[in-house]
């Protein structure tokens, strides 16, 4: 079958357009990579970076030589992993009963949950609560206050409603109690939605700068976003006061950005397959 000329032109145009589109989304990342590997003088010249100019690892050496970068990594990984797991557990166990039509006072519970979506206490009351709970200056201050999000609960409720009730009934006839059903049936079936939420929550916890800034004081508790901000501030200070460093602020910023996004980028592909599954589950099955 021969394609008409117009269609060919359209395909070619389409291809070029899409390549251009992927280039402009990819270039910023590539720019940062090149910048982080460029020498100081070259990095400051600016302009387009298709390849590192004056190749050097100096910026990475600067960032990684900080004694606290590994402490910060450790703390951030702890907060992200523990926070995500706890958050998923609490969110799904809250959503499961609420997905049941037979739950007594269901509307009351739902109203209470939705209420938190619309109204919040504000920063100072939240801070005081965290303080009164003796969570200040602990990593738990980054995890517990925002453990459950009403929005996430609603998403999981909707997902669980899509699971046929017959599955649960058959399990119940085999003698499983609600707790058992929740752990052996609901959670495995919810994997797609939980993976999606895990990604949102993990990225949020990984990048959480503000909470770390206001709740943490001890250097030993420093997290990655906090330390990166400090490194950048230190570079800027050095520039303002005329102290010369070995690498430019620009490349150090680029290097820290890359170091902080690489772990999350590495997790992404493994979770992404559930995204696709999640969409299919919702759309194809009746």
């Amino acid at each position: 079958m021969k394609k008409p000329i117009a269609s060919k032109i359209f395909d070619a145009g389409n291809g070029i357009f899409l390549i251009f589109l992927s280039f402009i989304t990819l270039y910023p990342l590539w720019h940062e990579i090149s910048l982080s590997l460029s020498s100081k003088a070259e990095a400051l010249q600016g302009g387009f970076f298709f390849f590192p100019r004056g190749f050097t690892f100096q910026a990475y050496a600067n960032v990684l030589s900080s004694d606290y970068i590994w402490v910060a990594y450790g703390n951030t990984i702890f907060v992200t992993v523990v926070g995500t797991l706890l958050s998923l557990l609490v969110t799904s166990s809250m959503a499961y009963p609420l997905a049941k039509r037979t739950l007594p006072w269901k509307n009351v519970w739902m109203t209470l949950i939705v209420f938190t979506m619309i109204f919040s206490g504000g920063m100072i009351p939240v801070y005081l609560v965290v303080k009164e709970l003796s969570l200040l200056n602990t990593l738990w201050a980054l995890i517990l206050p925002n453990l459950v999000s009403a929005f996430n609960i609603i998403i999981v409720i909707n997902f669980i409603r899509g699971i046929p009730e017959e599955i649960e009934e058959s399990a119940m006839m085999d003698g499983a109690n609600p707790i058992r059903i929740y752990f052996s049936i609901i959670i495995p079936l919810c994997k797609p939605v939980l993976a999606t939420l895990a990604l949102w929550i993990a990225v949020g916890l990984w990048n959480n700068f503000f909470a770390a800034l206001i709740y943490l004081n001890d250097k030993a508790l420093t997290t990655l976003p906090l330390l990166i901000r400090q490194i950048i501030a230190g570079q800027q200070l050095a520039e303002e006061t005329g102290q010369l460093a070995d690498s430019s602020t620009e490349s150090v910023i680029a290097a820290t950005i890359l170091l902080s996004i690489i772990p999350i980028l590495a997790v992404y592909p493994y979770l992404q397959k559930y995204f696709v599954k999640g969409v299919m589950l919702g759309s194809v099955k009746s």
């Binding site: 100072i124 801070y127 200040l136 700068f209 800034l213 206001i214 001890d218 400090q230 950048i232 501030a233």
Partner: peptide, 21 residues
């Protein structure tokens, strides 16, 4: 000597003040 970087420092100060800390 403890430090808090960035523009949000004043926010932190306000919170510390409101918590009497």
């Amino acid at each position: 000597a403890q430090q808090a970087p960035g523009e949000d420092y004043q926010t932190k100060l306000n919170l510390l003040a409101s918590a009497d800390d």
